[in-house]
Amino acid sequence: RKEMTAACTPRRRIINLTSVLSLQEEINEQGHEVLREMLHNHSFVGCVNPQWALAQHQTKLYLLNTTKLSEELFYQILIYDFANFGVLRLSEPAPLFDLAMLALDSPESGWTEEDGPKEGLAEYIVEFLKKKAEMLADYFSLEIDEEGNLIGLPLLIDNYVPPLEGLPIFILRLATEVNWDEEKECFESLSKECAMFYSIRKQYISEESTLSGQQSEVPGSIPNSWKWTVEHIVYKALRSHILPPKHFTEDGNILQLANLPDLYKVFERC
């Protein structure tokens, strides 16, 4: 597991931080080997919608929660590849102030007048994250320049770009939802926020969305749709870069829909 690298990086740093090793061990302890084997050997059937997909393993048909699986995938990559990410360069710098204002204007932020003026909160978020810029760049390849612009994001899987519609809320939550006081809790909560931002979430995906850094293989055609990215990038990574937690067998994120021999018997009677 320590050699797990989802995106190509030129050289690998050895990380011996106790906090990170502890988080890696927790993933191992909570892992479910049968689910790992199923995901490793599954045959992708198709997307139901951005949140759900169908896959077959041996004779069984499964309904998989793409949102939760991708979130767990990105969390584990962030923990196992800690401080070893490439950088996704933004085509132009994104001012943190503008991103924070967009987030505060969104109902998702939960902002009320009692929280104070949005401009003041946005300025605080910019200054707060600028103070964390060195650590964010060093460990997470999340790059913020001296003017308070976001200029780079971590490359977690080759050819995958997170849904940038979720970027404003991500920046807001970096400042408000991460435990910045304790090292282990900081790395864990920061990785979880980043994983949620990178995950496939239906509120940020339309039929026209593209999450891939590449064009489709047909010359002159439109960019790959999110469905292509889910199948050929995300579920491909799920084959080798995730140890599913045991609770996925109990919380409805992986559901067995049918045993195909039983279905064949039904059709034979028709």
Rank of each mutant, 00 (worst) to 15 (best):
K2C: 12
V230G: 02
E26C: 09
D262R: 12
Y235N: 07
L39E: 14
D251V: 09
K130S: 15
A100V: 02
L64W: 11
P10V: 12
K132P: 01
N179I: 08
E113P: 05
M196R: 05
L150A: 01
A100L: 02
L121V: 03
S22G: 14
Q256L: 11
E25W: 15
A122Q: 01
V48Y: 13
W111C: 15
S19N: 06
A103H: 04
E231Q: 10
S189D: 04
Y80M: 02
I125H: 01
I254T: 10
Q30P: 14
G116A: 15
E183L: 04
I169P: 14
Y75D: 01
Q58S: 06
V161E: 07
P154N: 00
L167Y: 00
I157V: 07
P117C: 15
I14W: 14
F170D: 00
S141T: 08
E72N: 10
L102I: 05
A7I: 12
L142A: 01
S206G: 09
T59F: 12
Q203P: 09
K2N: 14
G120M: 15
K192M: 10
E188G: 03
F97Q: 02
Q24L: 13
N159R: 05
E114H: 10
L153K: 00
S240A: 07
D115T: 12
Y75Q: 13
V266F: 15
M135A: 03
F267N: 03
P95E: 06
V230E: 05
S225H: 07
I171W: 00
T176I: 06
A83E: 11
S141D: 14
Q30C: 05
L39R: 11
E119A: 04
I14Y: 12
L96A: 01
T18V: 11
E188P: 03
P107G: 03
E177K: 01
I157E: 05
V34D: 07
L260K: 06
P95D: 10
I14H: 07
H232C: 12
Q24W: 14
A94H: 03
L104I: 02
D262H: 13
T249W: 10
V34R: 12
Y160M: 03
L121M: 03
D138I: 05
K184A: 09
P95G: 06
V20C: 12
L90K: 00
L174M: 10
K130N: 14
L96P: 00
Q256A: 06
Y75M: 10
D181H: 02
S240F: 10
D105F: 09
K184Y: 12
E182Y: 14
S221H: 09
L155V: 05
G46A: 03
K246R: 11
S206Q: 04
E33T: 10
A6K: 10
V161Q: 06
L90S: 01
F128C: 02
E165T: 04
E119P: 03
L102F: 11
P244F: 14
N224M: 06
E146S: 03
E165F: 04
E127C: 04
V230H: 08
F128G: 01
E182G: 03
E250L: 14
L102Y: 12
R1Y: 14
L121D: 01
L211K: 08
Q214C: 07
E182I: 08
F140I: 06
S221R: 11
T112D: 08
Q30A: 13
K265L: 13
F170G: 00
V218P: 09
T176F: 02
G152E: 12
Y204H: 06
V20G: 15
L167W: 01
T112W: 15
N253H: 07
H42I: 11
E217M: 09
R239G: 14
T5W: 15
M38I: 10
R173H: 13
S206N: 09
E143M: 11
L172S: 01
D98T: 08
K236C: 14
L99R: 00
P50Q: 09
E134Y: 03
L39T: 12
L99K: 00
L211I: 07
I254M: 08
L17F: 14
V266K: 15
I77W: 11
F44T: 08
R11G: 09
Y264W: 03
N16V: 14
I125Y: 01
K236I: 13
E127N: 02
L164C: 06
D138G: 02
L23R: 13
A6Y: 14
P244D: 15
I254L: 07
D251I: 15
K236T: 11
Q24F: 13
L64P: 00
N84W: 14
Y80N: 03
G220F: 11
L129M: 14
V230Q: 07
L64H: 12
V230T: 05
V218T: 05
Y204T: 09
V34K: 10
Y75A: 12
K246W: 15
E113G: 07
E123K: 01
M38T: 08
L104H: 00
K192C: 08
T176H: 01
P219A: 09
K130P: 02
Y264K: 04
N253G: 12
V45T: 11
I222K: 05
C47S: 05
P223F: 09
I15V: 10
A6N: 13
R173F: 01
L243P: 14
P93T: 07
L21G: 04
G152C: 10
H57G: 12
E25C: 12
E108D: 04
L69Q: 01
N149G: 13
P10E: 11
E37M: 12
E217N: 07
N65K: 02
I222W: 12
M196T: 04
G252D: 04
M135G: 02
E29V: 13
A100Y: 00
T229I: 10
E143N: 07
E193A: 10
E217T: 06
K236M: 14
Y198L: 04
S199W: 00
L104T: 01
K131F: 14
L54A: 08
E26P: 13
W226N: 05
L88I: 09
E217Q: 10
L104W: 02
R201L: 03
Q203Y: 12
I254F: 05
S206L: 08
F97P: 01
P245K: 10
K118M: 15
E108R: 03
L23E: 15
N28W: 14
V234Q: 01
E25N: 12
Q30H: 05
S240K: 06
D105M: 08
E250Q: 12
N49I: 09
F97M: 02
A237G: 10
Q76K: 08
T18G: 09
E92M: 06
L61R: 00
P168D: 15
D115R: 01
P219G: 10
G148T: 04
D138W: 04
R12Y: 13
A7R: 13
P162E: 00
Q30M: 10
I125F: 02
P163G: 08
K131Y: 14
F128I: 02
M4V: 08
G220C: 09
Q215S: 10
E165M: 05
G166I: 03
N16Q: 06
M101A: 09
T5Y: 14
S212E: 09
G120A: 14
K236E: 13
K192Q: 09
R36W: 15
D158L: 14
D138T: 03
K265N: 07
D98Q: 08
P245A: 12
L238K: 02
M4E: 11
C270W: 15
N179W: 10
W111H: 02
G252A: 08
L61W: 02
I79L: 06
E71P: 00
Y124S: 02
T229C: 08
L238W: 13
D181F: 11
L99V: 09
V87H: 05
E182Q: 06
T18H: 12
A237C: 06
Q256V: 06
S216Q: 07
L39G: 05
V87P: 03
E119Q: 04
K184N: 06
L17P: 07
K246L: 13
H232L: 14
C8R: 06
I254H: 11
P168W: 00
P162A: 04
D145R: 01
V126W: 11
Q76A: 13
I222S: 09
P223A: 08
L260M: 13
N28V: 08
W226H: 08
F82E: 04
F44R: 04
K192P: 00
L88A: 07
A94E: 02
R12G: 10
G116M: 15
E134K: 02
K60T: 07
P261V: 12
T66E: 00
Y139F: 05
K130I: 14
S199Y: 00
N65F: 00
Q214L: 11
L255W: 15
T5D: 12
E182R: 04
L142M: 09
R13Y: 15
K132R: 03
